[in-house]
Every structure is written in structure tokens, then in C-alpha cells.
């Protein structure tokens, strides 16, 4: 049923302001069907998940967040959340893979941890993606941890996504041999496999669509698997094509609209009708622009999904509504 049955790691990216965190959250809710455990991760220190789901700021610890969107028969899975920060990830990594004992403490004491996570470039991304990898690919070292059916990553924006996932490349010049190198290669194997999909969120405007196209090209060049394009904040479609054309041309039937308004029980004034006509013309112009951008999205040759603009803003109920749209269209 889903377009992505094999995918265990859903990476959600998008240009700033397009709503990538919203889409990542809605996707997690949509994936959490009966009996499934889904993990929603964020890596940018914004605590966006906590705000969206109205819970306390998340620690570096997997927390049960909420239940998923119910199936047709009312079954629902569980969505967990994790806020990944580089420093905690490094400490966890060291204790999981190296019994460093005193040396581990010394690393912290001498500022190596801070150094590694703030100054040493690339290392930060590797630590963040490393933890994501661990959550997808649970092994015996992390005992009693939940085995997730899917992991959704609220990832850095489109402009940064390819270097972010292309960890072995980032480390290439720095760690040429040794266990870190071997591990980053293993991570790349997952990120490049059909078990990963990088979804891109856009809105139907010129710059975000262009950036999406560029992002797809970069991902493909790095042999990272491109998932779907989620077109967010789509305007309502209350007028048909003929009406839109008339609205643009300024030839909508004014007398007819006035009569309808009276019939609908509204006190008609010229100002009111002028306002409605002006709004219609403006809407028609934006819809035309949306349509031209939609054609560009269709030309990207990846599955696309559309989510409506929510006039009243997005609350928890709104997230479930968006999750419903994603499931209906086969993204989850």
C-alpha cells in the first residue's frame, strides 16, 4: 500500500520555511500503524518536536511521544521521539564501543569532547548521523532498546543535506584508517541502500522548487536515495479553471455574485463585492503560479504528495490531519 515498503529510515529535508519539521512529524504519525514503533529524531537543537507536540523539551533519550494516526479499524502504533546532540552522542558512542574508563573521563576533562563537537568540522555531522544509524540498525551493544519499524529524521535543510548524509566523504580527508573510517563506511552502506529515502519538502514557489530540483541532483550525484517530494501549504481549490481564468481577466459575473450573496443571506455592499473580486483575482494569480511550479515538480520524476495550507495554523489535531493526507496518498 505504501510507496516505501522497504524504507526503514525516512530522512525529511526541505528549504527553510517550507515546514519540514511539520511534515516529518506528520509522516511519523502516519507510519505508526497498528503494532508499529516509529522513532522521530531531530538533530538541530531547536526542540521543534517538543513544541509541536506540546511536551517538555526532549532529552538525549528515546521518549514515548504519542500514538499514531488510527487505522481504518482503529488500531494505532506508537511514536517515540529523540533529540540528538553531538556531545551526548559522542559520549554514548565511546562508552558503547570503547571501554575507555579513565580515558573517557579524561577526554571530557581536557575539553576533547567539546573540541570534537564544536570545532572539528564534519565530526559533528558524523556523530549525529551515527546515532540515527544506531537507532535504525540496533545491535546487541544497546541492550533492551526498542527495535523500530521506521525512523523519521527531521534533517538539516536541503542545502546541507547531501554533505550531512555523505559522512564518509566528510571524514575522508581526516580519518583515513581506523575504526571510525570503517564505521562511517558501514553507515554509508545503509544511507545508500533502498532502506533509506530522502524526502524533500517544498512549497509551490519558484525558489523552493528550484532548490528542491538542485537538492535532488546533488543527492543523486552522491548516490543517496531520493524519496518523494512533499508539496506543502497548497492553496485551497475553491474555484474551477474557468472561474480562475475569468477572475484573472476580471470578467467574473458581478451581478450573478451579488444575487448569490443576497440568496446566501449577506447584506451586499459594493465594497464587499469589490473586495471579493479583488481577492479572487489575487488568488487566481497565485494559483497560476502554483500550477506552473507544480508542473516543474511533476517533471522531477519522483513521487509527489500534497498537503493543504492550514489557515488557522498547525496544532496537534492539524498534524494528525496532515498525517491522514500522507497516508491517503500512499506516502505511509
Amino acid at each position: 500500500m505504501s510507496d516505501w515498503p522497504k524504507v526503514r529510515l525516512h530522512v525529511v529535508t526541505g528549504k527553510g520555511g517550507t515546514g519540514k519539521s511539520t511534515v516529518a512529524s506528520a509522516l511519523a504519525l502516519a507510519l505508526a500503524t497498528r503494532g508499529k514503533n516509529v522513532l522521530l529524531c531531530e538533530v538541530e537543537g531547536r526542540q521543534g518536536i517538543a513544541r509541536m507536540f506540546d511536551v517538555d523539551p526532549l532529552p538525549y533519550q528515546e521518549r514515548r511521544l504519542t500514538t499514531g494516526l488510527p487505522d481504518d479499524d482503529g488500531g494505532r502504533g506508537v511514536v517515540h521521539a529523540l533529540h540528538i546532540d553531538a556531545e551526548s552522542a559522542l559520549l554514548e558512542y565511546l562508552s558503547m564501543y570503547y571501554r575507555l574508563g579513565r580515558a573517557g573521563k579524561a577526554l571530557d576533562r581536557f575539553g576533547v569532547i567539546e573540541f570534537a563537537t564544536t570545532i572539528a568540522p564534519g565530526v559533528r555531522d558524523v556523530l549525529l548521523t551515527g546515532k540515527v544509524y544506531e537507532a535504525v540498525q540496533r545491535n546487541s551493544r544497546n541492550k533492551s532498546a526498542i527495535e523500530y519499524d521506521a525512523v523519521v529524521l527531521d534533517a538539516p535543510p536541503t542545502g546541507r543535506i547531501t554533505p550531512f548524509l555523505n559522512v564518509s566523504n566528510e571524514l575522508a580527508g581526516l580519518a583515513k584508517v581506523g575504526p571510525i573510517k570503517a564505521q562511517s563506511d558501514t553507515m554509508m552502506t545503509l544511507f545508500r541502500s533502498p532502506r533509506t529515502a530522502v524526502h524533500l519538502v517544498t512549497v509551490l514557489e519558484e525558489m523552493p522548487v528550484q532548490e528542491t530540483a538542485d537538492g535532488i541532483a546533488e543527492l543523486r550525484a552522491a548516490r543517496l536515495p531520493v524519496g518523494g517530494v512533499v508539496v506543502n501549504q497548497v492553496r485551497p481549490r475553491d474555484l474551477d479553471a474557468d472561474d480562475l481564468a475569468a477572475a484573472r481577466a476580471g470578467t467574473l459575473d458581478r451581478a450573478r455574485i451579488e444575487a448569490d450573496l443576497v440568496e446566501g443571506g449577506i447584506a451586499v455592499s459594493p465594497a464587499l463585492v469589490d473586495g471579493l473580486l479583488a481577492e479572487a483575482a489575487d488568488h487566481a494569480e497565485r494559483r497560476a503560479l502554483e500550477d506552473s511550479q507544480r508542473r516543474l515538480v511533476a517533471g522531477l520524476d519522483v513521487p509527489s504528495y500534497e498537503l493543504p495550507r492550514m489557515a488557522g495554523g498547525i496544532d496537534l489535531g492539524g498534524l494528525y490531519e496532515l498525517a491522514g493526507h500522507l497516508r491517503e496518498q500512499g506516502m505511509a
Partner: peptide
């Protein structure tokens, strides 16, 4: 009747919100 006008009113409501 009046699908067009109903559409205009919904657009208006959306914008006001």
C-alpha cells in the same frame, strides 16, 4: 447553485483567518 460565489466566500474566510 452559486458554486462560484460559495468558492469566493470560502476563499474570503480562509484569508480572514
Amino acid at each position: 447553485d452559486g458554486a462560484l460565489t460559495a468558492g469566493l466566500l470560502r476563499l474570503h474566510a480562509d484569508r480572514v483567518r
